[in-house]
Amino acid sequence: MTTAPLRLDEIVITHEGKPLIEVSARIEPGEILTLMGPSGVGKSTLLAHVAGFLPLGFRASGRIRLGETELGRLPPERRGLGLLFQDPLLFPHLDVGGNLAFGMPAGGARRQRRSEVEAALDDIGLAGFAERDPATLSGGQRARVALMRVLLARPRAMLLDEPFSKLDTALRDEMRRLVFERIRRDALPTLMVTHDRADAEAAGGPLIEL
């Protein structure tokens, strides 16, 4: 699958008339752009805007483009962006396999979908976990399932919202390596928001400090 750069053209977000954040950037496939800054500067709001969830009371101008597609006009579900939060947010009413299948595009025979889920679980070292209750997984396992769920939806770009901040130190390095490796392998342009400098260093991409 070929991917295209993600471009943020003169994005300005205002909150009740007051300017909050201004960003222009071009993120190449496989590149991770890190936005750093203390809380309250609007970096998560920017991420929400790109994903299509600008909270009420905020206004945004500028253009978001993925290749030639103008994302600003599309509803969130048609933007083709993968979003990872600091919590894994696995749907508690579905089993692990159900969570992965939720991310997969519709279509295909039931058996084929199931074997794709199995293969995906195997890929993240969780073979045989399809019927487990997400609540019984460890923190690291949940984070891996959440990542795999996003990847199975075949996004064309990634948005990471402090994705490692809730993991303990040992897990954090491991998850960083896994996430960044997948992003590069699938050549996904990625926008990461964090307040942890180590995230930015590990990403090895351009850095915007707010």
Partner: peptide, 25 residues
């Protein structure tokens, strides 16, 4: 709200978010 945001970014339409995520949860 992040539950429906996660579902939407995974490609679920508003109807499907309502039926497959919000109602069961």
């Amino acid at each position: 709200p992040r539950w429906r945001q996660v579902a939407a970014t995974l490609g679920a339409s508003p109807a499907s978010v309502f039926l497959r995520v919000r109602l069961p949860m």
